[in-house]
């Protein structure tokens, strides 16, 4: 009997990678290949009558980034600005809730947790719809204002409405990681800081917030990425008057300008991912500095 080779398998044991095969095939066929395809597509020559004309070009990218009146450049900038605003607002609004949820000993904790989760069970369309009923020109708020003899406010068809609704849509994605991070912080650390003479504000900025950075980071990245790619809410609450990269890309698709749409979509993803990477670097340094 020779020494068994390390790769030999006992008889009757099926190769384990068979377990991985279905997901790998699916992801390869429905993610990897289509994304490579869209990359190739973005270098095609656009046409309004068929998917694309023969030949390859950088034209889609130069048009998007070096267009003389900077239309798409500004659009990209607006999209990122909107995403940043939403991320920041989500962080500010989510933090107290996450803190409360992480620390409460109330017997309602389960119910409160379910309340945070439950909006996720309701589709984005429906949640946007709720905001439309509230914010529309003849919506609940403006009708009430009118009834009380006040001038109606422009609440929808502008960035305000879009940001408000998106903050609502993405809030759970901020609360959950924050809560996880805060739960991992020993409450005695806060007490220790208090005993050392730090006031509540100091305790927050010097102890709680730095220690919750991992949660802040995951929450912010998640919300930022989701905001960059949001389509339904801007389309419904912006109703053609708030433009983002995604609404523009869909419009281009309707006009059959696929290669150009592909280029725009890829630019948005790359810029979004780059922003995330920079942010992760920065906050990584911050975390190390405070650790």
């Amino acid at each position: 009997m020779t020494a068994p080779s390390p790769t030999a398998r006992p008889p009757g044991v099926r190769p384990r990678w068979l377990l991985a095969a279905p997901v790998l095939v699916t992801v390869a066929a429905l993610i990897v290949v289509p994304y490579v395809n869209i990359l190739v597509m973005s270098f095609r020559v656009p046409s309004t009558t068929k998917p694309y004309l023969p030949g390859f070009t950088f034209g889609n990218y130069t048009k998007a980034l070096a267009d003389p009146d900077f239309f798409y450049f500004e659009l990209l900038f607006d999209t990122l600005r909107l995403a940043l605003t939403i991320t920041f607002l989500c962080l500010v609004v989510a933090y107290p809730v996450a803190f409360h949820l992480a620390r409460t000993t109330s017997r309602w904790k389960g119910v409160l947790y379910a309340l945070v989760l439950s909006p996720l069970l309701v589709g984005v369309v429906i949640r946007s719809f709720g905001w439309i009923i509230l914010l529309a020109n003849n919506g609940l708020i403006n009708q009430s204002l009118k009834a009380w003899g006040m001038a109606p406010l422009p609440l929808m068809y502008n960035e305000f409405g879009v940001v408000l609704a998106l903050v609502h849509v993405f809030l759970p994605f901020m609360i959950l990681p924050l809560m996880g991070a805060i739960q991992g912080i020993d409450p005695r650390l806060e007490e220790a800081a208090r005993s050392l003479g730090a006031g509540p504000a100091k305790v927050f900025w010097r102890v709680l917030f730095p220690l919750s950075m991992p949660g802040v980071q995951s929450g912010c990245i998640l919300v930022f990425v989701l905001s960059c790619g949001a389509y339904v809410t801007p389309a419904l609450l912006g109703a053609g008057r708030v433009h983002t990269m995604t609404t523009e890309v869909i419009t281009l698709l309707d006009q059959f300008l696929w290669p150009f749409g592909a280029a725009l979509a890829l630019i948005l993803s790359v810029v979004g991912l780059a922003a995330v990477a920079i942010y992760a670097r920065l906050s990584g340094r911050l975390m190390r500095g405070l650790a």
Binding site: M1, A3, P4, A8, P11, V13
Partner: peptide, 22 residues
């Protein structure tokens, strides 16, 4: 026990080799 496969040598129970048996 057979949860790890040795990278060398052999294991026998009553003289019967079990080294690669599951």
């Amino acid at each position: 026990a057979g949860f790890e496969l040795p990278t060398g040598g052999r294991i026998t129970f009553d003289g019967n080799e079990v080294t690669m048996l599951p």
